[in-house]
Amino acid sequence: MHASAPEVIDIAHRGYAGVAPENTRRAVREAAASDATMIEIDVQPAACGTPVVVHDERLEGTQERDGRPLTDAEGPVRETPLEEIRSARVLGTDETVPTLAEVLEAVPETMGLNVELKNPGAADLRVGESLAPDERDDRRAVWEPFVERVVEVCDGFDGELLFSSFCEGALAALRAVDSRYAAAVLVWDDLEAGFEVADRYDCEAIHPPRNAVAGTALATTAYAGFPADEPSIDVLERAHEKGRAVNVWTVETWSQYDQLAAAGVDGIIAEYPGLSSR
Results as ranks from 00 to 15, higher is better:
185 V>A: 10
186 L>K: 01
189 D>W: 01
189 D>V: 01
190 D>K: 03
191 L>T: 04
192 E>D: 13
193 A>C: 05
194 G>A: 06
195 F>N: 04
195 F>E: 03
195 F>Y: 03
197 V>K: 10
198 A>S: 14
199 D>P: 10
199 D>W: 03
199 D>C: 04
200 R>I: 01
202 D>G: 03
202 D>P: 08
203 C>L: 08
204 E>Q: 13
204 E>M: 01
205 A>K: 05
205 A>F: 12
206 I>D: 04
206 I>A: 07
206 I>Y: 08
206 I>G: 06
207 H>M: 10
207 H>W: 07
208 P>W: 10
208 P>E: 09
210 R>A: 12
210 R>P: 00
210 R>W: 05
211 N>K: 04
212 A>R: 02
213 V>C: 00
215 G>C: 05
216 T>D: 00
217 A>G: 14
218 L>S: 07
218 L>I: 12
219 A>C: 14
222 A>Q: 03
222 A>G: 05
223 Y>P: 03
226 F>A: 02
229 D>C: 00
230 E>T: 14
230 E>W: 04
232 S>G: 13
233 I>C: 00
233 I>L: 12
233 I>Q: 02
234 D>H: 12
235 V>W: 03
236 L>P: 12
238 R>H: 09
238 R>Q: 14
238 R>W: 06
238 R>M: 06
238 R>T: 15
239 A>G: 11
240 H>D: 08
240 H>E: 06
241 E>R: 14
242 K>V: 13
242 K>W: 00
242 K>G: 10
243 G>K: 04
244 R>T: 14
244 R>C: 09
244 R>N: 11
246 V>G: 00
246 V>N: 01
247 N>F: 13
250 T>G: 12
250 T>L: 15
250 T>Q: 08
251 V>P: 00
251 V>F: 08
251 V>W: 04
252 E>C: 05
252 E>N: 13
255 S>P: 00
255 S>D: 15
255 S>A: 15
259 Q>I: 12
260 L>T: 11
261 A>G: 04
